[in-house]
């Protein structure tokens, strides 16, 4: 990471801590904000957060590793999360899954080479009556069929 980038990131984290406060109860909000902006929480960011919040880096890492939506590894610009829980599964998740994998040429848990999309599974999205459903970043898409899912993915930048 370049020094400039590091400085910017530190500045960003400091700003967030000013906004949310440096109490422990702000940790998740800060992590969410960093995740949203940088699509992951780098080891440097984790240590900066730990330093500024006066906690141990391993505690930050521990919290990140607990929550599915937080990640220490870089992700693509768009994170696609396909629901694999029962109702969506029954409604045809498998077909969507196969089509999406084939279209993007990657498996779930991977990111496209152009960093455009990361594919992930997720548990129940609360769209059980409208399955199969997927989340693209924070937006939810329902009643998917393979073709529709692929078209949606091809449209995102």
């Amino acid at each position: 990471m370049l020094v400039v980038e590091k400085n910017n990131l530190s500045y960003e984290i400091e700003r967030m801590i000013k906004e949310y406060g440096n109490d422990r109860q702000s940790l998740l909000q800060i992590l969410q904000a960093i995740q949203k902006k940088y699509k992951h929480i780098s080891d440097f960011a984790q240590q900066e957060i730990a330093r500024l919040m006066n906690i141990h880096p391993v505690e930050v890492y521990s919290v990140i590793s607990f929550y599915s939506f937080l990640s220490t590894e870089p992700k693509g610009r768009n994170i696609v999360r396909l629901c694999k829980t029962i109702a969506c599964d029954m409604a045809g998740k498998d077909a969507v899954e196969i089509a999406v994998k084939r279209e993007l040429g990657i498996s779930f848990g991977e990111t496209t080479n152009d960093q455009r999309i990361s594919l992930e599974y997720t548990n129940c999205l609360g769209m059980c009556n409208e399955g199969p459903a997927m989340l693209i970043n924070e937006k939810v898409y329902t009643h998917l069929d393979p073709e529709m899912a692929v078209n949606i993915l091809n449209e995102i930048k």
């Binding site: 029962i86 109702a87 548990n123 129940c124 609360g126 769209m127 059980c128 009556n129």
Partner: peptide
């Protein structure tokens, strides 16, 4: 609300 099959909330 995370229970599979729940979406009333």
């Amino acid at each position: 609300e995370g229970e599979p099959g729940t979406f009333k909330d």
